[in-house]
Write a protein that binds this DNA or RNA. Structure first.
Length: 101
DNA sequence: ACTATGACAGTTG
DNA sequence: GCAACTGCCATAG
């Protein structure tokens, strides 16, 4: 587990329930500005039963970057936390965005 | 070494 | 608000 992975993991883990953050911000807060794509790749490799709240991470447009069935899974998890997700997977960042601690 | 690809992002018209 | 373009960086073939 390299330093990058460790930092990203801890950062994602801090996103409070009912809030969301973006790939770019996570990378930035973790100390790796510009590594948004690497964050996405990392989350994609996560095991199913991971304790990491990966579903609280979305893209800068405020939408879920997954497709098909995966998108549905993430949406249900978010809705379960009280976050409003439109039928196309869009979320109001102005309302649910997490700006760090 | 080179190219293509991806759970991305910022700027511009 | 949206589409096109450009910049970004690790991985895979």
């Amino acid at each position: 587990m390299d330093d990058f992975t460790a930092q990203i993991y801890s950062q994602v883990h801090q996103i409070p329930q009912g809030k969301v953050s973006t790939y770019g911000d996570i990378a930035k807060f973790a100390g790796f500005p510009g590594y948004a794509r690497q964050v996405g790749k990392l989350l994609g490799k996560l095991p199913e039963g991971s304790s990491l709240p990966w579903h609280r991470v979305i893209n800068a447009k405020g939408e879920i970057s997954l497709t098909g069935n995966d998108l549905e899974r993430q949406r249900s998890k978010l809705i379960a936390e009280g976050i409003e997700v439109s039928d196309v997977g869009r979320i109001r960042l102005g309302r649910y965005r997490w700006d760090g601690l």
